[in-house]
Design a protein around this nucleic acid. Structure first.
Lengths: 181, 181
DNA sequence: ACGCGCATGTAACGCGTTACATGATTGC
DNA sequence: GCAATCATGTAACGCGTTACATGCGCGT
């Protein structure tokens, strides 16, 4: 999966592993994050497979950086992946729900503390999304290709905000229900 | 993770691997699923670690079944895990959002087909949750311990329904937005 | 005779996570 | 002088997924 995220970003412009990590952290990390270790190893793998090439940049002063450039084979691999319609709904893995499912024997106060903390964490996430939306240059007229990209990215951001809002509301309702026990 | 789900169920009663698989499929699979291969290997691991014990049952006719029983050490491990408050929000891994993020170059009709399919899939999930709620014995008065369990399970089901509802609405809105391009 | 459900397992692989590791520059 | 940021990587591990593999009983 991370393979296609890397190809997806490299399809816009050549980048280094570090830049890719930064870019991911500020965008797709909201629905798919990656550790730098995985990014560097996957980039090497992509190079071995001929989907990208790399060249060293001798930064004056700063450490050497390896700039990765997508190759036609890489663009094709990306296109093939995007053209293969996803036929399943993504599986959900929510640890909190597992914990809650088995929480009947727990001290209710402890459960409440946990849910209130989650509430704060998800509120922070929502705030972060809000900040991105506000920082977003709502370009009245720019390159239509960039605008098109922006449009699709906004859809994912929209989902993120809806999801967090739903999550927070559910947490608040759940807290109330448990308090009422 | 699956380790604690298994301990969680075995904490109610001894079960075989197959029964655990069935139970998970009908309950926690909505937020954490497992393949039978993982269940069997994890059960063996738990036995090796002394958290559960197993005994063979010679079923007349049907194949041999291995019944797993939780041990005090297993109950303690479960309790310790539940008592350790989760301090992070669970990371999200939604492949569809990754795909959408990089879908600006794709044929819009193809994207729409994909989103419409997702809409159906999530509607099916929602219907499945609804069926569980309706099949749920809304016991006016039963053992308070069972009722307590039921209560917490209902919270997770509630989240599942809210999530799917949000997802479907977002999909419908996104479809409309893409159609308007 | 064939397929499905019951029932159990192993093996290999892939992906993601955590930890280990290095070294330079910039700002306080 | 020290911490943070830039920048890159390796190694080991754990978990989850896919595929392979077996064999019985029941219904059509």
């Amino acid at each position: 999966m991370i393979k296609f995220i890397l190809l997806g970003f490299l399809n816009y412009q050549p980048m280094t592993g570090y830049q890719l990590k930064q870019t991911i952290d500020q965008s797709t990390a909201h629905f798919w994050h990656a550790y730098h270790s995985q990014i560097y190893t996957t980039l090497r793998q992509l190079e071995k497979d001929g989907l990208v090439t790399s060249q060293m940049l001798q930064g004056e002063g700063s450490p050497d950086r390896r700039l990765y450039t997508i190759q036609p084979a890489g663009q094709q691999a990306l296109k093939d992946w995007l053209d293969t319609t996803q036929k399943e709904a993504s599986p959900i893995k929510e640890e909190l729900l597992v914990r809650l499912f088995f929480s009947a024997q727990r001290d209710p106060q402890q459960v409440l503390t946990e849910l209130r903390l989650q509430c704060e964490l998800h509120q922070k996430r929502l705030d972060a999304y809000q900040a991105i939306v506000e920082a977003m240059p709502h370009q009245t007229q720019a390159h239509s290709s960039l605008q098109r990209d922006q449009h699709f990215r906004q859809l994912t951001l929209d989902m993120g905000m809806r999801f967090e809002t739903t999550y927070i509301t559910w947490l608040q309702d759940s807290i109330r229900k448990i308090e009422a026990l």
